[in-house]
Computed example of a mutant assay.
Amino acid sequence: MAKDSKLEARLKAVLDGLAAADQDGGNANAGTVLSMAVAAHPFDEQEAHLLSGGVPRGYKALTTATAKLVKAGWMVKGRGGWAITEEGLRALVAFPTAEELGAALAAGTPVPADIELPAPVEAEPQAAGPAAEPETAGPEAAGEPAAEPEAAGEPAAEQETAEPEASEPEASEDRSGQPESVAIAGDFAALLGGAADWAPELDEVQMEFHAPTLSWVRTVDLPAGTYSFKIAVNRSWAENYGAFGSFDGANHELNHGGGTITIHYRHDTKDITIS
């Protein structure tokens, strides 16, 4: 299979995985979906070659190519995972093979307007259990005398009306000019519980936005050692920053004595600091 054909097949597998997650009613973990796509269409020797950052060439190509699916409006990437859109579901119907889907992406071909959403797969009905026995009637139904009503005329006790507590307004979070997500992608993701190192799409390596300082921060606890990482934007290698905030630059090197550290990143200045 040609190189471009393999990439098209993996992109098709990514959409198929997202469609399956949508059927289950939720978003998909990016790392899981990408791993399934690679397992279905393994790397050849050239694609398995590790780049300077320790990332397989084919893996970087795949994560970068998923931006085409986002641009086409067929999927979205968020902090809660990846999800297929209705347009993406219709694209799987309109372009059922990897070759057709790849050609549509390359040419910017929209999904025909007459393509309908695929029908959801209905769950198999559960076997009916034994019929429930009728409930035993209470004493009134059985003919026993009902309890005498309380004497009327006594004034009901007045209920105190509780005044609602005033709630403090939540602080607004200014995200203008900020990316959807920022990750610390490096060779220590497995220590954070990630499925693989150098995988910016994993939930385990995402940073949190701190509005007061306009910074993205992440605190990690690492054993003593030397580590490498980059800042990756929007769960992809398409936009990443290395040493000195250089776009697609050399890796950050961290000589760590062990313990907890906090990594800070400002997207407006591309400054990366560690405390």
Rank of each mutant, 00 (worst) to 15 (best):
D187Y: 04
W237S: 04
L7Q: 14
G25P: 10
A28F: 12
P155L: 15
E170K: 11
E47H: 06
G194H: 02
K60D: 13
S215I: 04
G26M: 08
A196R: 15
A91H: 06
D271R: 12
P155W: 05
G129V: 11
A146W: 05
Y241A: 10
P96S: 12
T262C: 01
I184A: 09
E158F: 00
S176E: 09
A19F: 06
E116C: 14
P200L: 03
L69N: 02
S35E: 11
A20C: 03
A190W: 01
P56V: 00
D203F: 02
K230I: 08
S181K: 01
A238L: 12
T262M: 06
G73N: 08
Q46A: 15
L11G: 09
A152C: 00
S236E: 05
A72F: 14
A131T: 13
E122G: 10
G249H: 11
M1P: 07
S236H: 03
A146N: 07
P164R: 13
G129P: 00
T262L: 05
H256M: 08
V121G: 03
E208R: 06
I263S: 02
G81D: 03
P139C: 04
A67K: 12
A195L: 09
V205W: 03
T85P: 15
S176Y: 01
R218P: 00
W216M: 12
T161Q: 09
P169I: 10
T161W: 01
E124P: 04
P139F: 07
G88H: 13
I84F: 09
